[in-house]
């Protein structure tokens, strides 16, 4: 395993780089999109709520692979050029945004209603009350699940291997094919995934415990 790791260090490292890049981009983008849909889901207008809910329910029930493949295969045929990394990252973003929307919505709704009412009666607008009063309280509840979403993103970004997205899994497949040493290659790839995900996972558990008891 170590032999494979050292002799293919450049390829593995670049794969890890693409994996992390896809995960970080998708996390930020899905945080924005997810929060927008979370706000739609709790909107005061019925139709906005319906649209928000429909998006979340639809995306949550479809495999990530199907979404990523659709972007890779369909978009370039009809709309525009799109490489595997881009298609995969967009797929990851859309998929994850639905889960983040649920997390953020639950976080916001767990802040007691009285907080919003109190802020409003003190003369704050709905938006002001949201950003100054509700969000800061919701964020503590939301951070650990968001951390877990990031771990999921790192793991899920392996679907980039299906669309030639240069990620860690893709590089692993190429190395396995070049060296014929499948077992050791995937062991090395596994270790590299764990180097990212394990510390994250323990850190999130620690935060959850601490903030839960606080």
């Amino acid at each position: 395993m170590f032999k494979i790791m050292f002799s293919n260090w450049d390829a593995l490292l670049s794969g890890l780089g693409y994996t992390l890049m896809a995960s970080v981009i998708a996390l930020i983008a899905s945080l924005i999109i997810g929060t927008a849909f979370a706000l739609m889901e709790i909107s005061l207008h019925k139709w906005v709520r319906v649209i928000g809910k429909a998006y979340v329910e639809f995306i949550r029930n479809i495999p990530l692979l199907v979404i990523a493949m659709a972007f890779y295969v369909i978009v370039p045929q009809f709309i525009m050029q799109m490489d595997g990394f881009t298609a995969g990252t967009i797929g990851l973003t859309i998929y994850t945004s639905a889960f983040i929307a649920e997390t953020v919505r639950a976080g916001i709704q767990s802040v007691p209603n009285g907080q919003m009412e109190g802020a409003r009666s003190n003369g704050l607008s709905y938006m002001q009350a949201m950003t100054h009063v509700v969000f800061p309280q919701a964020i503590k509840l939301v951070i650990p699940p968001l951390g877990n979403q990031f771990i999921n993103l790192v793991k899920n970004s392996s679907v980039l291997a299906f669309v030639a997205g240069f990620d860690l899994m893709y590089q692993g497949k190429l190395i396995a094919n070049a060296t014929f040493n499948t077992f050791d290659t995937y062991l090395a790839v596994g270790v590299l995934y764990l180097v990212i995900t394990m510390p994250m996972s323990y850190a999130m558990r620690y935060l959850e415990k601490r903030w839960h008891t606080a």
Partner: peptide, 18 residues
């Protein structure tokens, strides 16, 4: 060089102008 996992996927990628 872009490498896909099988010939069906590769041909689909060519048709998708990848």
């Amino acid at each position: 060089v872009l490498q896909l996992s099988d010939y069906a996927q590769a041909f689909t990628a060519l048709k998708s102008h990848q």
